[in-house]
């Protein structure tokens, strides 16, 4: 959805996340108490999740997290989410920091927390932490 370059360690979410009300942009931590990964930090991670959800304020929260340096390096999803793409577009326009947002046609099952992952354009390659 938003092409760019990034690499980092994967944080894989088991359920969709609403960034607004679900992520604290001052810390980069997940605050949705009903989310299985509550308490985890997205900062400098390659965030992998089934999809976005919920609030239309998610774009502001992603943009603010990128500004504050607590945002993810890239967002990979199984389904498109315009609110997340929008946050990445505006962070690029305002601060010149591009967080790629990519929908994986093959889904996200192959990606696990701790994997090393590189995004280049719309292409994603990952190296499993478990194999190494």
């Amino acid at each position: 959805m938003v092409a760019g370059e990034a690499s980092g360690e994967v944080l894989r979410l088991d359920e969709p996340l609403s960034f607004w009300g679900g992520l604290d942009p001052t810390t980069g931590r997940i605050i949705d108490r009903r989310h299985p990964q509550v308490g985890e930090s997205v900062a400098d991670r390659v965030l992998v999740m089934p999809s976005g959800k919920g609030s239309s304020g998610g774009s502001s929260v992603l943009c603010e997290a990128v500004r504050a340096g607590t945002g993810p390096r890239a967002v990979l999803m199984a389904e498109p989410d315009e609110i997340i793409a929008l946050g990445a577009v505006v962070a690029d326009e305002l601060y010149g920091r591009l967080v790629p947002v990519v929908v994986l046609a093959e889904g996200i099952d192959g990606l696990h927390t701790g994997d090393r992952c590189t995004v280049s354009g719309q292409t994603v390659s990952a190296y499993s932490a478990r194999r190494s």
Partner: peptide, 17 residues
């Protein structure tokens, strides 16, 4: 418009620009 809810400086940077 929902962007009028303050979520941090990014809100103000965008509307301000």
């Amino acid at each position: 418009i929902d962007s009028c809810l303050f979520t941090g400086m990014a809100s103000l940077d965008f509307a301000g620009r």
